[in-house]
Design a protein around this nucleic acid. Structure first.
Ligand SMILES: [Mn+2]
Ligand SMILES: [Mn+2]
Ligand SMILES: [Zn+2]
Ligand SMILES: [Zn+2]
Lengths: 140, 140
DNA sequence: CACATACTTTAGAATAATTATAAAGTAGTT
DNA sequence: AACTACTTTATAATTATTCTAAAGTATGTG
């Protein structure tokens, strides 16, 4: 049924390994998210709006949420938060850092920041990861 | 009218300098937040529930939100986010770092972390602050 | 102290992000 | 082609938050 030729194999594989059948809607969402050079930082509403704007037949809200959640659970997306009450997702799943610049989010590669001193984990715990947010403001 | 003797002066002052009249509800909220040794990290819902649980006459939701927002605008509270979609507030307004331990938030004093290498701000911007989150997990 | 007035409290409605429901449609299998 | 489990979707429900407007109160003035 799917006209999903081998050029979509990489996206189909992401979906299958997330436990999802590669339906047209899901392949398009996955392609939109991962078929790009630069990291994408997005909310589900933003994703829905930017994809549906160009479409005559809209993909439903629930499908966007379901697909994003499954990709996140499978480890293909990372969730983070700004200081408003919406979830953001990051297509860069490696441990890395961010500039927060008036609502804009910019990646900082992990090796651009190194530590001289770091505290130890409390007893019974260990460090999972260390992530830095550098908040920016206008110059003068 | 207020039975607010001088033992509440410090809280009344915080409210006044936040542009708020020191009503009984506001003084109690402010006292609850700042009359303690250790930093408090909280959501408005948590604050409301823990204060109202012990009260016969409940303080309304809107009053909690208004008071917290005013204290935040005046710089007496800092806002931050976890990976769910609610705003958290921090009574520690200094620039500092955190452990995130399964939903629990623990302060790390600023001087416990120092950097060896940090990126520069993009052109036209400058660094407002640098904050680190150390995510923890169970030991083995 | 007595009033006036601007500010406050509150219940309840409204909004925004997200999750749940269940009926109609489709993918993968045989 | 037919079966069945999984999906899509419209719509309802939920949660956190903000708004509204009516009733109540803090504070300055006489
Ligand atoms: Mn929410
Ligand atoms: Mn919200
Ligand atoms: Zn990123
Ligand atoms: Zn803190």
């Amino acid at each position: 049924m799917q006209k999903n030729n081998n050029k979509n194999k990489i996206f189909i594989d992401k979906l299958r390994s997330s436990g999802l059948r590669p339906t047209n809607q899901r392949v398009e969402i996955t392609k939109f998210l991962f078929n790009r050079k630069k990291t994408l930082h997005f909310t589900v509403e933003e994703l829905k709006n930017s994809m549906n704007l160009k479409r005559s037949k809209k993909i439903s809200t629930a499908t966007f949420y379901n697909t994003v959640h499954a990709l996140k659970s499978a480890g293909y997306l990372k969730e983070f938060s700004l200081e408003n009450n919406t979830s953001y997702y990051d297509t860069n799943i490696s441990s890395h850092h961010h500039f927060f610049d008036n609502g804009k989010v910019i990646d900082i590669k992990s090796d651009k920041i190194t530590f001289q001193k770091l505290p130890e984990a409390p007893k019974g715990r260990k460090i999972k990861n260390v992530e830095v947010v550098i908040r920016l403001e206008n110059n003068n």
